[in-house]
């Protein structure tokens, strides 16, 4: 079991957008869907060591800002080449206006 760690306030992330969150030497993304749900996935592309924080969040996808790999941000699944390895996704809960990730 991981530890629930505060990542940010809900207001820190706009709808259909992301926030980079670094913890324990590792990079994560907190992503807020247009339906106002929060998700957390690894922040580094599985294809090369590119930070995904500059990528576009749209239509359920986070796109790598360098090689256009696609990941389903709800599950971390790699859905378009060149990435073929899924991103790890992390459990998220929202409490009193804060987003927590179980790391």
């Amino acid at each position: 079991m991981g530890t629930w760690t505060r990542a940010c306030a809900t207001d820190d992330v706009e709808l259909e957008d992301l926030l980079r969150f670094d913890h324990g030497g590792r990079s994560f993304l907190v992503i807020r869907s247009p339906e106002d749900e929060f998700f957390c996935i690894d922040g580094i592309c599985t294809h090369e060591r590119v930070h995904l924080a500059d990528g576009l969040v749209m239509d359920g996808i986070i796109e790598c800002p360098k090689h256009n790999a696609h990941f389903d941000y709800k599950t971390g699944e790699a859905t378009r080449a060149p990435a073929c390895i899924n991103l790890k996704s992390w459990p998220v809960k929202v409490e009193n206006g804060d987003v927590f990730v179980e790391i």
Partner: peptide, 8 residues
């Protein structure tokens, strides 16, 4: 990669 999102 700061311009990537807008170019996309």
């Amino acid at each position: 990669t700061s311009v990537a999102r807008d170019i996309r």
